[in-house]
Amino acid sequence: MNIHESVGLFFIAAAMVFFLSGTMGLLRFPDIYTRLHALTKADNVGLGLLILGLSLQATDWLTVAKLILIWLLVLLASSTSCHLVARRALQKGIKPWALK
């Protein structure tokens, strides 16, 4: 096992922590805004670390480019949908948890 593979495995293990915390946040947080925060931030950092770990182990550049493209697309998509859902929730008059 060479150094690239070990460092990649380390990053993948770190990604698992972030995925776990994202799901815990979705299950445990009190209202919709905090759940959005947990879901769209923690999960994307986890995915980014996973992609970093996998692209350290990749053999050719095309794979690395595809992986990074996937991450950028997911970042764009999840930030857009998080913004849309939070704005619509505010428009519908759902109060944030801290202001109750």
């Binding site: 990604a15 994202g22 999960d43 997911v74």
Partner: peptide
């Protein structure tokens, strides 16, 4: 919206499962 966000979590985690 909570249900919809859970579906979004499925999307991200399913993506990670596919990559792994």
């Amino acid at each position: 919206a909570d249900r919809m966000m859970a579906a979004q979590l499925f999307g991200t985690c399913g993506l990670a499962i596919l990559l792994v």
